[in-house]
């Protein structure tokens, strides 16, 4: 369905390895029961691109990025990640999940494992990395997020900001091509938001492809290549940060920005 229209819009075919488009979403729809949560989502992300997704709560932004690694299933349309099509084929899902790291609002660290074990679990069991090597890599990333000294502690002994930085390190240990952030600072105290955002900014500087759902407009302005505004399950507007914030086109975007920037 709607194949021709799709090809016109994206201008490229997701399954071709040579293209620069690392994520291609075409005419994607999703329902929760009878509730139409995502309506005709079309989005192409280039390699190394940094995208911030914003919008009011319930607008479907989290659901959209969770479709990219199949935490949510879409019912219509196509999603290609790194040239692999997301279907019900479990093999493809596994392949894609290896390449896509995800950071959650509530960190979702494994409380029964130490920080180091949290970081080495994926490499050891999914990538079959030898334990010693996995630990060396994990320590490297823990240093990068500036908490190597906490490696042997358990997540419950760390502050929220530290936990979120561990979660970022844990994802990076899998050496992903894409990182998804689902409101990574929404559950943090104000004084901890900065340390997490700084970590994300450093990550962006390394050239990681990032999709970030966030309300941190300062982060969007400094880091994003493109800002996407969603409302009611649709992508309403997308633009580079400057024109997006200075000169929003759509009424709903203007209303949202006025509300979020007012305080």
């Amino acid at each position: 369905m709607a194949e021709t229209q799709t090809a016109e819009r994206t201008g490229s075919i997701g399954s071709s390895k040579g293209s620069d488009d690392i994520i291609v979403i075409r005419n994607m729809h999703k329902w929760y029961g009878d509730f139409h949560v995502l309506k005709n989502i079309n989005l192409t992300v280039k390699s190394k691109e940094r995208i911030v997704v914003c919008g009011p709560s319930g607008s479907g932004k989290s659901t959209m990025i969770r479709c990219i690694n199949r935490l949510e299933e879409h019912q219509q349309g196509d999603i290609f990640v790194d040239g692999i099509e997301l279907t019900n084929d479990l093999k493809n899902i596994d392949l894609i999940r290896r390449e896509v790291g995800m950071v959650f609002q509530h960190f979702n660290l494994f409380p029964h494992l130490s920080v180091l074990e949290n970081c080495t679990l994926g490499p050891i069991w999914v990538r079959q990395t030898p334990k010693k090597e996995a630990e060396a890599i994990a320590m490297q990333y823990l240093e990068r997020v500036k908490i190597p000294e906490q490696a042997l502690k358990f997540p419950g002994q760390l502050s929220g900001g530290q936990q979120q930085r561990v979660a970022i390190a844990r994802s990076l240990c899998m050496n992903p091509k894409i990182m998804l952030f689902d409101e990574p600072t929404s559950a943090l105290d104000p004084e901890m938001i900065k340390e997490v955002l700084d970590t994300m900014i450093e990550l962006a500087d390394t050239g990681m492809t990032m999709l970030v759902v966030t309300h941190e407009m300062g982060f969007a302005k400094t880091v994003a290549d493109r800002v996407i505004f969603m409302d009611g399950g649709e992508i309403i507007e997308q633009n580079e940060p400057n024109p997006f914030f200075e000169n929003p086109q759509h009424e709903r975007t203007k209303l949202f920005l006025s509300q979020i920037l007012a305080h």
């Binding site: 935490l71 596994d94 494994f110 999914v126």
Partner: peptide, 23 residues
């Protein structure tokens, strides 16, 4: 067990039995 634990295990690419056994 919070749903987030399953999601974190899934998003890492762990298979069903791996995520059950390890997480």
């Amino acid at each position: 067990i919070p749903k987030g634990q399953y999601e974190a295990a899934d998003s890492m690419g762990l298979k069903y039995w791996q995520s059950m056994r390890l997480i």
